[in-house]
Nucleic acid binder design. Structure first.
Lengths: 158, 158
DNA sequence: TATTGTTATACTCTATAACTATA
DNA sequence: TATAGTTATAGAGTATAACAATA
């Protein structure tokens, strides 16, 4: 059993400490990931932010949903769903349809334009993945993806 | 009436798409992780945010550094390092010492109090890890930790 | 003149609270 | 009266730009 990388340390003895922690490393890598994803979205020049994409993905993950339900699933305020939806509706990516059973509800649906948009984001994401996962072996990358998915499922993420 | 938008199919067919992507999953899990870490820090009641801890960790990772160097390593504005350092200095966790060679530079050093503080954060982090990694086997957890460390190293994170 | 740290200001993101229309 | 969505307002977090001290 070869020890995991315990060489190549700086001369100053540093304890692994927080950097060996999942929460800390996930947090820091997470901001790097969303920063890069944000820049990729900027290149689309559609005024999209990661939260817009998160809404599309959340919408695509389940059945069509009201804005309140979306807010609940995404863990954001209902007022934020309003502005995100405003923008996405302007782009033609989602549609607001009044629920005839309860005319207070706006049921959101993903349009063909929206699905194509998600596919563009997906392609951009795969390109970013290849940069990011460059130092990983295929096996390591697969194990990482599997573990992340398990964590995401556990915390109720799409 | 026949608004032919293309929801001939129910949108219940799953979209592995972006959710199978590292950037997207890292991003969403990253916000969950920092949210939880933020709440753990709140319990300390010291007014600490994850960025304060990131500064301590960055400082502990290398030799003592000037505020500009810290800003560079952390990828934040120098003015942010000022306010973070102000707070950490008030807590006695770091010390500002003028560099005699270049009296413009404020060299920051981690104090014993600061090191103890990092240890408390580390303990909190390990507790959060156990919750988060609950659905993972020990092997999966180790593989995840190793892969995340490789990614963190690649992007220059502590 | 250029650079370090600081201060002042502005911007982005998001939440809370007030409002409207339906129920 | 209570709830879905909207609008208005406020707060947190961070960056940019102006400023002071030192090089």
């Amino acid at each position: 059993m070869s020890d995991v990388n315990s060489e190549c340390r700086p001369t100053t003895d540093r304890m692994p400490g927080l950097t060996a922690t999942l929460v800390f490393t996930l947090g820091t890598l997470g901001t790097v990931a969303t920063d890069r994803f944000t820049r990729a979205l900027d290149a689309f020049d559609l005024g999209l932010k990661p939260k817009h994409v998160a809404l599309l993905v959340t919408l695509g993950a389940g059945a069509a949903a009201s804005q309140q339900e979306l807010a609940g699933r995404m863990g954001v305020a209902p007022s934020l769903v309003v502005s995100l939806t405003d923008h996405l509706e302007q782009l033609g990516a989602v549609q607001r349809v009044r629920d005839p059973q309860d005319r207070r509800r706006q049921v959101l649906t993903l349009t063909t334009v929206g699905r194509r948009l998600v596919e563009r984001c997906e392609a951009a994401g795969r390109a970013l993945d290849d940069e990011l996962a460059a130092p990983l072996t295929p096996d390591q990358r697969a194990a990482l993806a599997q573990a992340l998915r398990l964590l995401a499922d556990q915390v109720g993420l799409p």
